[in-house]
Amino acid sequence: MSDAIRRLTLSHVVLPLAQPVSDAKVLTGRQRPLTETVLLFVEVETEDGHRGTGFSYSKRAGGRAQYRHLADVAEVAIGQDPSDIARIYDSLLWAGASVGRSGVATQAIAALDVALWDLKARRADLPLAKLLGAHRDSCRVYNTSGGFLQASVDEVKERASASLAAGIGGIKIKVGQPDWAEDLRRVAALREHLGDAPLMVDANQQWDRARARRMCRALEEFDLVWIEEPLDAWDAVGHADLSRTVDTPIATGEMLTSVPEHVALLDAGYRGIVQPDAPRIGGITPFLRFATLASHAGLALAPHYAMEIHLHLAAAYPTEPWVEHFEWLDPLFEERVEIADGRIRVPDRPGLGITLSDRMRALTRETATFGR
Rank of each mutant, 00 (worst) to 15 (best):
M1A: 13
D3H: 13
A4N: 08
I5M: 07
I5S: 04
R6E: 15
R6N: 09
R7M: 13
S11G: 01
V14C: 08
D23R: 00
T28P: 01
P33A: 10
V38P: 01
H50N: 07
R60H: 14
R64S: 06
A65E: 15
Y67E: 07
V73W: 10
V73G: 02
I78V: 15
G79S: 10
G79P: 02
Q80T: 10
Q80C: 13
P82A: 12
I85Q: 03
Y89W: 15
D90I: 01
I109G: 08
A111N: 02
A115F: 08
A121R: 02
L131V: 06
L132C: 10
G133F: 11
G133V: 12
R136P: 06
C139L: 12
R140G: 04
Y142W: 08
S145A: 14
G147Y: 00
F148N: 04
L149K: 00
L149F: 05
R159T: 08
G167D: 05
G169V: 12
A188F: 05
A189I: 02
A189D: 00
R191Q: 09
A197Q: 13
A197N: 10
P198E: 11
P198Q: 06
R209I: 09
R214K: 12
C216D: 01
R217C: 07
R217S: 12
L219Q: 06
L224D: 02
L231P: 02
A233N: 05
V237D: 08
D241E: 14
D241A: 14
L242K: 03
D247R: 14
S258N: 02
V259N: 04
P276F: 11
A278L: 09
H296D: 15
G298P: 01
P303A: 12
Y305H: 11
I309D: 06
H312V: 05
A315R: 04
V323P: 05
W328M: 12
F333S: 02
R343V: 13
R345Y: 12
R349I: 00
P350M: 09
I354N: 03
S357R: 08
T364Y: 08
T364Q: 05
F370Y: 15
F370A: 10
R372Q: 11
R372F: 09
